[in-house]
Amino acid sequence: MRLSVLKPQGKSGIFMSAEESQPTIRISQVSKYFGDFQALKNVSLDVKQGERVVICGPSGSGKSTLIRCINQLEKHEQGDISVDGIALDGSRSALNAIRQRVGMVFQQFNLFPHLSVLDNLTLGPMRARSMSRLDAEKLAMQYLERVRIPEQTDKFPRQLSGGQQQRVAIARSLCMEPKIMLFDEPTSALDPEMINEVLDVMAELASSGMTMIVVTHEMGFARRVADSMVFMDHGEIVESAPPEKFFENPDSERCQDFLEKILQH
């Protein structure tokens, strides 16, 4: 039923002010268990169209689990999640519709090692969006230029540096023309000198109006890009605030301690 509420998706999904009141991502009272262990405890989070949310928190606090629930790489047991007005109701069609709208970038890149850079990018558009090879390749080139590696099309992932691989992975997601991008510690597996080339691409993406949820400990990037900051600990959202307040005087002690630790160096 709720599918019918959708309006046709714009070419790149930017600047749809009409929808600003209604959150694009709505997570309410979500709980997730791994066996007896509760990884998410009644987590609620709304993300508006075009909003950039940065999530941080100690390792094991449930950051990955939370964003992976959005495209159901993890299945939550309790609570509701809806994206773009489509509720995850366990049906295949809702899941597909949501996955079409949500791109994800992983810590370990997860490029397809047996495919060239170009084939990594065209596979999704050709198989999941029924595009012709020609159109898919045009689209791929467009996004490779956007992530600033148009000259590596025929190389295989292993022949690229980590920073280049992650940018290819971002381009691969963008080729699906998602409305929302999820980033799970996209720079944590990179050598320090490659972190900025990836963050720059992400910042550029943010400035184009993409809705983004980014799990990262790069606080410089967060200050620059985030509309709101979220701090998680032990499966809960402990603090959620705009960056000014978040960095200057967070309410919770746990958040203060955490920020002190990671901002020290």
């Binding site: 996955r99 994800m104 997860n110 397809f112 999941a128």
Partner: peptide, 26 residues
Amino acid sequence: DKGQYEASHSISLSYSDTMRFVILPQ
């Protein structure tokens, strides 16, 4: 690696496409 399935899911490939184009060739 299970990351290969996750990447395939995240670009909304179907199960059979995931097998055919991503998992089985490797």
